[in-house]
């Protein structure tokens, strides 16, 4: 029972990490770091909540989250890909803007409610028969739509990246953009398009926290999880399979901290349990020797040099 609980929580908490980290893999493979990931998560969480609350429809919530992601991505992508401004600098600006904007617009829509507004959570969808399996049944086959989507996206991401022409172009844009350019394919368009797509995924990942997990929106709802997804992309070696493994590990850490917090175990101070994912990232970043870094990661493609 305990194991089943942990496993279920792990899969649940790893859902947004999978989606976000996969998005980061796709976009970094084209050579662009999406530093705005934390802010995009937040905008997604906000839009998902607002859409669902106003219309009462979770579907609209999900669509709004995607839209918010697309808009944030368009801003980030335009400045970094077309105007070739520094990615870390631009991303930081958006990450500062996002919480201000989200809170402000929340206020615009809802004024100052006495109690935090709430929406219904995305329902869990049990898969017939499979959800009754012992131990793994509930964890893998009785989750909400986003969790299923996350697994499907990982598989699709792997297939697209390594088995299709689109994937070939994406991988080439980060490994040698000149080759893509020389082939007559517009590098900027490939990068911008992937940024938009990835940010749409980030929006969904953010919405998981507001309408898939908590049912409300607060300023701290993401609390650095976007950065965890960013780190997982790195630690997973820019590969969807690595993302799957990494997300489950971090999901487990998240789940454990929830369990420890609620079970009242006081052996370990709670603060340190919360810090585990971050410490884990630091350790893994240091321990990993060889990385498969896309050769042109973070470098804008400028055609007319000199």
């Amino acid at each position: 029972m305990f194991i089943e609980n942990i496993l279920t929580n792990t899969v649940m908490m790893s859902t947004p990490l999978m989606i976000g980290a996969l998005a980061e893999v796709l976009v970094e493979r084209t050579g662009v770091m999406n530093i705005a990931i934390e802010g995009t998560f937040l905008m997604g969480a906000w839009a998902g909540f607002v859409g669902a609350y106003i219309t009462g429809s979770l579907t609209v919530g999900l669509l709004s989250a995607v839209l918010a992601g697309v808009l944030t991505g368009a801003l980030y992508g335009y400045i970094t890909v077309y105007l070739k401004q520094h990615q870390i600098v631009t991303g930081t600006a958006i990450n500062i803007l996002a919480p201000g904007l989200a809170l402000y617009l929340y206020r615009v829509f809802f004024g100052i409610p006495l109690l935090p507004l709430q929406v219904e959570l995305l329902p869990t969808i049990p898969i017939p028969f499979l959800s009754d399996l012992p131990v793994v049944g509930r964890a893998f086959f009785n989750q909400n739509i986003l969790t299923y989507a996350a697994f499907a996206l990982i598989a699709a991401g792997f297939w697209v990246l390594f088995k299709t022409r689109t994937g070939l172009v994406i991988r080439s844009a980060g490994a040698n953009p000149e080759a893509v350019d020389a082939a007559g394919i517009n590098v900027e368009r490939v990068r911008f398009g992937t940024v938009i797509f990835a940010c749409a995924m980030d929006g969904l990942a953010g919405a998981f926290y507001s309408i898939g997990f908590l049912g409300l929106f607060t300023e701290n709802i993401i609390g650095g999880r976007g950065w965890i997804a960013f780190a997982i992309c790195f630690l997973g070696n820019w590969n969807p399979i690595g993302v799957l493994v990494g997300s489950l590990v971090f999901g487990l850490a998240d789940a454990l901290s929830v369990v420890i917090r609620t079970s009242g175990v006081t052996m370990v101070p709670n603060e340190f349990v919360i810090a585990i994912p971050y410490i884990l990232t630091i350790v893994a970043t240091i321990a990993r020797r060889r990385f498969n870094v896309p050769a042109y990661l973070g470098i804008p493609y400028v055609k007319e040099g000199r």
């Binding site: 400045i79 930081t92 958006i94 201000g100």
Partner: peptide, 12 residues
């Protein structure tokens, strides 16, 4: 939250 918005827009 307007302060955060001002900072963000000024940076952008």
């Amino acid at each position: 939250s307007i302060i955060g918005i001002m900072e963000g827009f000024v940076m952008l």
